[in-house]
């Protein structure tokens, strides 16, 4: 019979693991990743491969040789960071810059805080923002999407729709003229806007998000309050003066909106615990995104908005406690 195990209850486990959750996120990103390969060709494949491989390698090396712990590569979290980083950069970004991005994301934003689960900020976003500030030129020369099938290296570069609008408004152009310079909303939604890899198809990102909701990897609170805040806040501006401000739909289908809504704001490590906290967090990200897009120096605001809200997560967790049994909840 051998020795019997003696341990405290409970004696069964539901079988959910970090690995299952993380690979679930990876699966959800695959459609959008394939779309980026389709639209941006070899460049996108190269960027993704480099970002993923370097993230995984950095995590392994740092865990093993600096933290002197047993590396757990298969948990998939470094793969997610790699893919998200790739989603956040243009397809013609030089390899060495991508590697620096991975190093910052994994080494600085994740491992220096103690690794998995301990980082206050979303690692991929930290990597992206670092690159944006350090290499503004390379990070904002976007290959233009060829509408047929552009396999091959990207030659032409051009601004993203968000940048077009921002510049247009800055130059005092009429909104209708600006809108003529960018693809229509259906095209933007289905996947034909220039920009980072992950900005290419709002639709496929939405699909991935729905998959994660279905698998209960994320809950609806952050995506919904985020989207609602974007629509309501930008809607107020637009109703006030449709000639100076773009309409809410444009905000929804452009830039990293869907990527941010479903994949980066919902990162469980860096978002609040309770549903109420998550609603406030999502709304905060939505409002900050619009503020940056309208008044900020950068055309895109999603990344900055998420990082800013990441910083207040500990406070949100202190303020919004779960509903306790036997007590009407009182918020301090």
């Amino acid at each position: 019979m051998g020795l019997l195990t003696v341990s405290g209850s409970p004696h069964i486990h539901g079988g959910l693991s970090v690995k299952k959750l993380m690979w679930g996120v990876v699966i959800a990103m695959v459609p959008a990743m394939l779309a980026s390969f389709y639209y941006f060709g070899l460049g996108a494949i190269k960027v993704t491969l480099v970002a993923v491989l370097s993230s995984v390698i950095f995590e392994y090396v740092i865990t093993k040789f600096i933290m002197k712990e047993k590396p757990n590569l298969m948990d998939g979290s470094a793969v997610i960071t790699g893919i998200l980083l790739a989603f956040n950069v243009p397809s013609n970004l030089p390899i060495w810059i991508i590697i620096i991005g991975s190093l910052v994301a994994i080494g600085v934003a994740k491992m220096s805080f103690g690794g998995l689960g301990k980082n206050p900020f979303n690692p991929a976003l930290v990597g992206r923002v670092f690159l944006l500030i350090s290499f503004p030129v390379q990070m904002t020369s976007w290959p233009v999407v060829d509408k047929i099938f552009p396999m091959g290296l990207d030659a032409v570069t051009g601004p993203t729709p968000l940048a077009v609008v921002k510049e247009g408004i800055g130059n005092g152009e009429k909104m209708t003229d600006i809108m003529n310079q960018i693809p229509d909303y259906t095209q933007l939604f289905l996947g034909q806007s220039g920009g980072s890899l992950g900005e290419v198809s709002a639709l496929l990102l939405l699909l991935g998000g729905i998959y994660m909701l279905y698998r209960k990897i994320i809950t609806w609170h952050i995506p919904l309050s985020f989207l609602a805040a974007v629509v309501i806040f930008s809607g107020i501006f637009w109703l006030y003066d449709p000639n100076t401000y773009v309409d809410p739909i444009f905000h929804l289908v452009t830039g990293g909106m869907m990527l941010g809504v479903f994949f980066m704001a919902t990162d469980m490590v860096t978002s609040p615990m309770t549903p109420k906290g998550q609603l406030v967090f999502g709304a905060g990200v939505g409002i900050l995104t619009i503020i940056i897009r309208v008044w900020g120096a950068y055309p895109e605001g999603v990344s900055f908005a998420i990082l800013l809200m990441n910083a207040v997560v500990p406070h949100l967790n202190n303020i919004f406690k779960p509903e306790r049994f036997g007590e009407e909840v009182s918020h301090g």
Binding site: L4, T5, S7, H11, H13, S17, V18, L21, N72, D75, G114, G115, L116, G117, K118, M268, V269, T270, M273
Partner: peptide, 12 residues
Amino acid sequence: SKRVTVQNCIRC
């Protein structure tokens, strides 16, 4: 009868 491997809390 053995417990699953312990990993860091991922704040889920």
